[in-house]
């Protein structure tokens, strides 16, 4: 992604975003509410047109090769996009059919198994808990095994247990060779999962590196009685400048 820009009217949300994601890695895009994470993911998944700059997914340009991009990636949006009236199994069969795969029923069954939804397979998705719905949502994204997957604040609103489950799924995906770009406003999530972390703030990437590289960005000279590794939270606050004022708002 090179010099990507996007405005909504007067609001200049993305002001020249640059980054690369290595194939098969987990890349976390960290930013507080309203930073532009969803906007960026929507541009990458061809849902939104950008104003300036270029972006490639799996080697295909999002603007001129949208069809190839859609073949290459799958999106799990900020809000679970499952059909509430259909059953879990019907949701999966629907996506498998739309991807023109042979044997949609068998594909659905194996994903239900993998996401521990077999028992709930024939219940309407509206009866699912938040965690189950999210699992179904991710399962729908994995049909056809796209090389790239975008996860937009996938764990927001999940209870801690469901969150750990989603984390496990994401790690499995990367181990299987899938490139994962996830957005989050939870610092620990980025810290736990990502090979590289980029911080999106004021429409730009403020820092981009591994966790230890980001830690190295902090001024080392600190006199403290107890030696303490800076947490990603401190790095984040220092970099975005929010740490300086004491009226720091917790990201919600």
């Amino acid at each position: 992604m090179r010099d990507l820009e996007k405005s909504f009217g007067d609001v200049h949300v993305l002001r020249g975003v640059n980054f690369d994601v290595a194939p098969g890695s987990i890349f976390a895009l960290l930013g507080s509410n309203g930073a532009g994470k969803t906007t960026l993911v929507k541009i990458l998944s061809t849902l939104l047109a950008h104003d300036r700059g270029t972006a490639d997914v799996n080697g295909f340009d999002v603007a001129s090769q949208a069809g190839e991009v859609r073949e290459s990636m799958s999106l799990t949006g900020q809000f679970a996009a499952v059909d509430q009236i259909l059953t879990g199994r019907e949701n999966l069969v629907l996506v498998a059919k739309l991807r023109h795969l042979d044997n949609p029923g068998a594909i659905a069954d194996s994903l239900l198994e993998r996401f521990s939804l077999t028992d709930a397979a024939s219940r309407a998705a509206s009866t699912y808990s938040g965690g189950m719905r999210r699992r179904l949502d991710i399962a729908m994204s994995l049909i056809s095994g796209p090389p790239v997957i975008f996860l937009d604040e996938t764990t927001t609103g999940l209870d801690p247990e469901a969150r750990l489950e989603v984390w496990r799924t994401i790690r499995d995906l990367a181990r299987g060779g899938t490139t994962v770009l996830l957005t989050t406003q939870y610092l620990d999530e980025a810290e736990q999962l990502a090979d590289r972390i980029a911080i999106l703030h004021d429409g730009r990437i403020f820092a981009n590196g591994t966790l230890s590289e980001l830690k190295a960005l902090l001024p080392p000279a600190r006199v403290e009685y107890v030696e303490k590794q800076p947490s990603l939270k401190e790095i984040f606050l220092a970099i975005t400048g929010q740490g300086r004022s004491r009226d720091t708002k917790e990201t919600s």
Binding site: K42, S45, T46, L47, G67, R70, E71, M73, S74, L75, G77, F79, A80, A81, V82, D83, Q84, V95, L98, R99, M140
Partner: peptide
């Protein structure tokens, strides 16, 4: 409003 529309639009259909 429920996101199904966006899911479908992000797919190669």
């Amino acid at each position: 409003s429920g996101g199904i529309f966006e899911r479908l639009r992000s797919m190669p259909i």
